[in-house]
Design a protein around this nucleic acid. Structure first.
Length: 291
DNA sequence: CTTTTCTCCTGTATGC
DNA sequence: TGCATACAGGAGAAAA
């Protein structure tokens, strides 16, 4: 489940293996991989042929290559990995993966770039760039906690004004980007807050501490190459990270809390699973009409 | 406008 | 063994 740290690992791989090279051609298989590119896959392939890869960038869980045409025009090749997307750098002629959706060949004849995605929640698109080299297509996505532009005081104010559950806010990419289910649960565990507590019921310092924990846990995960539970999330060379060994809440149902020893519970929330410590993260009191 | 629910997809695990 | 069902869940459309 690629979240910010996993996507950043991939971005670094692209920076090391793809930036500076010239794309010779692209092959897109099926309509779904480029469904967000409205002119279609053939248009995408035609537009990036012959471009120079200037940089690899990221905001939250989005990743893009800044491509420059010979005439100097810039555009973004925007990628989202979804649940199971992979960007892999491979030797030419390596066997096609079962879920290979796109292949990029380079003018130097060296390694190729592939987009492989089992569940196809991910995809590729072309987008215009702002002056800050952010794709127009993700202008609605908020800054992530690792960006210099991240304004934590602003995010705290916006959270405080919400009447929704704090975990829902953490997962809202228009509020703060990059946090998914794993790191939301880890940040909440560290902050000792139950995810169903209302934003508006938490103090500003508590909300700020929660964001600090979200940034900290994602930085620590990045230092270990990200979190992997299986072969679905890998870096550009196909290797897995090992932060899963350091998780305290996510996926730990029935295991003792590292702080107090109480067994971690799993609860349904937003049609997903949430993991927390019943003792360190007590549920909010039931609310409703008449009480 | 804000907030919540639904939908997309396929491999793996579990139940009968 | 075989078949059905649950689950994983990011993001955007649709609904409330």
């Amino acid at each position: 489940m690629p979240e910010l740290p996993e996507v950043e690992v991939v971005r670094r791989g692209l920076a090391g293996h793809v930036v500076g090279r010239i794309i010779e051609s692209a092959e897109l298989r099926g309509a779904r991989v480029a469904r967000r590119h409205l002119p279609g896959p053939a248009d995408l392939a035609a537009r990036i042929a012959g471009t120079h890869v200037e940089s690899a960038r990221r905001r939250g869980k989005y990743l893009w290559l800044v491509l420059a045409s010979p005439d100097g025009e810039r555009q973004a090749l925007l990628a989202h990995l979804g649940m199971s997307g992979q960007l892999l750098v491979e030797e030419p002629g390596a066997p096609d993966e079962k879920h290979l959706h796109a292949r990029f060949l380079f003018a130097d004849g060296g390694t190729e770039l592939r987009f492989v995605d089992q569940r196809t929640f991910g995809g590729l698109a072309l987008s215009e760039l702002t002056d800050e080299l952010v794709p127009d297509a993700i202008a609605h996505i908020a800054a992530d906690p690792l960006e210099p532009a991240f304004d934590q005081a602003l995010v705290v104010r916006r959270m405080k004004a919400r009447d929704s559950a704090v975990k829902r806010a953490l997962l809202d990419q228009t509020l703060v980007s990059g946090v998914g289910n794993i790191y939301a649960d880890e940040a909440l565990w560290r902050a000792q807050i139950h995810g169903e507590r209302l934003c508006s019921a938490l103090t500003r310092p508590a909300l700020s501490r929660l964001l600090d924990h979200a940034r900290d846990v994602m930085l620590e995960a990045l230092g270990q190459g990200g979190t992997s539970f299986d072969a679905l999330y890998v870096n550009v060379n196909g290797a897995s990270g090992y932060f899963d060994r350091s998780l305290h809440a996510y996926g730990q149902e029935g295991r003792p809390c590292a702080r107090c020893g109480t067994l971690i519970r799993r609860e349904a929330f937003m049609n997903r699973s949430s993991y927390s410590c019943p003792r360190c993260q007590p549920r909010p009191r039931a609310r409703g009409a008449g009480n």
